[in-house]
Nucleic acid binder design. Structure first.
Length: 745
DNA sequence: ATTAGGCGATTTTTT
DNA sequence: ATCGCCTAAT
């Protein structure tokens, strides 16, 4: 057990306290994953059989990392432990048990897109206008209800406005249809096990006995459903260890619930609590800066994170003219950093707030010849051509899956249009069966043309053929022969555009992925593969083989560390994101997110922002992020003098010299009149209009149509200036100042 | 009945 | 820039 000596004493105690409930409050870089892995190793070393372990993480990356580290510590004997994300582990469990709650073992897993499609169908059928009631909003609302363990019936009771009433109707139907389709959405993967355990205490008891030791990583990000699940499974032996850090809670939008931390102590009053406060990862400079930032959150648990590490390099700030300029500067600084710090590409990460930002940095990296690897983004499995092939495979595995059926019934085009599908739908409803089965009952009497019936039958025959083949062909053979049969590759080839060629490659890649999967996994059937793709967002990511810079969102970076980290796009409206700016809570979540980003860095941190950026197809002129200003100026330096050298800028215009409160959350604007702040239109002084001079963020104005409102944001300059205004009665609008004729009140 | 092309609305983060 | 929806053409 020599490995245990590689931990400090608190870490050791935390790792060895294997009986009873344990909470480990672990600051960033304090060796949290290390403690968890050693804990697993320790459990195995004292004779606990690996199959008694359930280790739950939040992301696939975290799970992979954990597995890797455990294997390197104890070897393959950990293989039968269940280590993975909540979603994948409970999907696995449901594959064994779903029949007890009325689902087939071959259930489909619907991703967000599939759910949305289902909701659109339902809205259509229930005649609920998709114009007035946005399917996306309804999907989000349903998901958030499910995260909070609110059932459709409860939701109906508490619905407080027309939107929620409609949502309640759709919610009910949605759950019904999921079941009809033998499908579960992401939330169901957590809710259905709860239902299973509640209805079948014996099954719960079986898993309680099996999983004697439960470990939960990133506990601050669990939602109520996850909390309830682990509470149930741990209910008998109570050997549960949770690890978390409130300062790194960044999934509030997905239902993560801070109460879970408080309730843990209530539900397990005998819990032992360990605090890990020594940071082993970052330099003092980085840690101090991160602390200065997070201190601005009112809502937080006071913590003193400290380190023995050296002071290290100052943080470099890249002040840039445009997004292109920013990307180029990042690329240039990567080259410099590699020489200066004697590191490799793979020791560098580039983080951003939104996936959309990756494109511009990708271009710059390509031009500079810097190898890179993107995590997430336009995920492989979300690409249309891939989803199409997957839909075929899903339908073959689960013919009840009407969403997949609809997706491919006319792809490639085979003359089955909306009208025919609607007829089929009516038939399916009548005989209470799936679309697939309904094909058999379609007759001309139902008003469908002979031609259409023939085409439907052909389609059914095609799928049936593969359902039959499935018993004799391997997953790999079956999917290859399928792709051949439906002829999509030929179609792409004929199109011949760059785009379609890349689609073709993607399909080939999918086929290789299936082959590889079957080879690697003993029971690597089609079902298992489909489950894997539904839940694994980033395919083959993060293998250390490639020497490449890693690009990803700050969310994806959680739990990872790099020598050199670039955080890009530190601008108001981007980071913190526009949608969060009006709510203190959401700004605090953005700030925690920034904190997570900063603390990924071991040695040298770069922060960048641009004064102009293309967003949603148009040019915007953002201001630097408030988070930048929260770092004291003795911790950073400007990496490049470009700001001063290049035309159109001079030192006075640098944001650090500008009045600092140009953007304040709406709620804090109450006494704004005393603190008027001039909005900076620092690009074209000449064209700056008179109106813009008088208007400020926070000004109260009157508009001839919309009435009274307050300015939340000013974008652009001169004639192009647009104001985001929150009107008392008309809600939030974006107006061009030159047209709006606003009256200052 | 289907498809192609044009128009308007819309994008945070993940399983 | 991209997606979905609507309308007009095939």
């Amino acid at each position: 057990m020599s490995f245990i000596n590689q931990l400090n004493s608190v870490q050791q105690n935390a790792a060895k306290q294997v009986e009873g409930p344990v909470m480990i409050v672990a600051g960033a870089g304090s060796g949290k994953t290390r403690v968890l892995t050693y804990r697993v190793a320790y459990l195995l070393s004292i004779g606990v059989p690996p199959y008694q372990l359930l280790v739950l993480t939040f992301t696939n990356k975290a799970a992979d990392e954990m597995k890797k580290r455990i294997v390197s510590l104890v070897g393959d004997k950990s293989a039968s432990a269940w280590i993975g994300t909540f979603h994948s582990m409970f999907a696995r469990l449901l594959r064994y048990e779903s029949e007890h709650i009325g689902y087939g073992k071959n259930f489909s897993i619907y991703d967000t897109d599939d759910s949305l499609g289902l909701i659109k169908n339902i809205q259509h059928d229930l005649e609920i206008s998709a114009q007035s009631f946005k399917p996306n909003a309804i999907r989000a609302r349903i998901s958030s209800a499910k995260n909070k363990l609110v059932s459709p019936d409860q939701f109906e009771i508490i619905a407080k406005d027309i939107f929620e009433e409609k949502t309640a109707l759709i919610f009910k139907e949605y759950q019904k249809r999921l079941k009809q389709n033998n499908a579960m959405d992401f939330d169901d993967l957590l809710l259905k096990p709860i239902e299973l355990f509640e209805r079948h205490p014996k099954i719960l008891s079986k898993y309680q006995d099996r999983f004697r030791f439960i470990l939960v990583d990133e506990y601050q990000d669990t939602n109520r459903a996850q909390y309830k699940l682990i509470k149930m499974i741990a209910g008998k032996y109570k050997n549960i260890c949770i690890v978390g850090d409130d300062a790194q809670s960044i999934y509030g939008f997905r239902g993560a619930d801070i109460r879970n931390i408080l309730d843990f102590e209530k539900d397990f009053p005998e819990a032992k609590i360990f605090h890990l406060e020594q940071n082993y990862r970052s330099t003092q400079t980085i840690l101090t800066a991160a602390d200065q930032v997070i201190k601005n959150n009112v809502n937080r648990i006071e913590k003193t994170l400290w380190t023995d590490n050296p002071k290290g390099e100052p943080i470099s700030v890249l002040s840039c003219q445009s997004d292109t300029d920013e990307s180029e500067k990042v690329a240039a600084n990567i080259k410099k950093a590699i020489l200066k710090y004697k590191i490799d590409f793979l020791n560098i990460a580039i983080l951003y707030r939104t996936n959309a930002q990756s494109r511009s940095i990708e271009d710059a990296l390509r031009r500079s010849g810097i190898p890179y690897l993107i995590i997430g983004g336009i995920e492989f499995y979300k690409r249309k051509e891939i989803k199409d092939v997957i839909a075929y495979l899903r339908l073959i595995v689960n013919p009840k899956d009407d969403i997949s059926f609809q997706r491919i019934v006319n792809y490639p085009v085979r003359g089955i249009g909306d009208v025919t599908v609607n007829h089929l739908k009516a038939v399916a409803e009548e005989c209470k069966c799936s679309f697939f089965e309904a094909v058999d009952f379609v007759t001309e009497a139902k008003g469908i043309s002979k031609n259409a019936i023939e085409k439907l039958k052909q389609f059914r025959k095609l799928i049936q053929k593969f359902i039959d083949l499935k018993t004799i062909l391997s997953a790999s053979e079956l999917s290859r022969s399928l792709v051949d049969d439906i002829g999509i590759l030929k179609e792409f080839k004929e199109e011949g555009t760059v785009e379609s060629l890349s689609r073709m490659e993607n399909v080939h890649e999918l086929l290789s992925a299936i082959t590889e999967f079957s080879e690697k996994n003993e029971n690597g059937g089609l079902e298992a593969f489909l489950q894997e793709v539904s839940l694994v967002a980033d395919v083959d990511q993060l293998d250390d083989k490639h020497n490449a810079v890693t690009l990803m969102t700050v969310h994806s970076a959680k739990g990872l560390e790099y020598d050199v980290v670039f955080i890009m796009g530190l601008e108001e409206g981007l980071f913190p994101i526009f949608q969060a700016i009006q709510s203190t809570n959401e700004v605090e979540e953005e700030r925690r997110l920034f904190y997570v980003g900063m603390t990924r860095c071991m040695r040298k941190l770069y922060l960048s922002y641009a004064y102009s950026r293309y967003r949603m197809g148009e040019l915007t002129y953002p201001n630097p992020s408030r988070f930048m200003k929260e770092i004291k100026d003795d911790l950073y330096i400007y990496e490049n003098g470009a700001l001063r050298k290049e035309s159109g800028f001079n030192k006075e215009l640098d944001f650090f010299d500008r009045p600092i409160k140009s953007q304040v959350p709406f709620k804090k604007l109450k006494n704004y009149s005393e603190k008027k702040v001039v909005v900076q239109h620092f690009r074209n002084y000449e064209s700056q209009s008179q109106v813009a001079e008088e208007l400020h963020v926070g000004s109260v104005v009157r508009h001839s149509t919309f009435g009274k409102g307050r300015i939340l944001q000013l974008n652009g300059n001169g004639d192009e200036t647009r104001a985001v205004i929150d009107f008392e009665n008309a809600g939030r609008k974006q107006l061009m100042l030159k047209y709006a004729a606003l009256e200052v009140l």
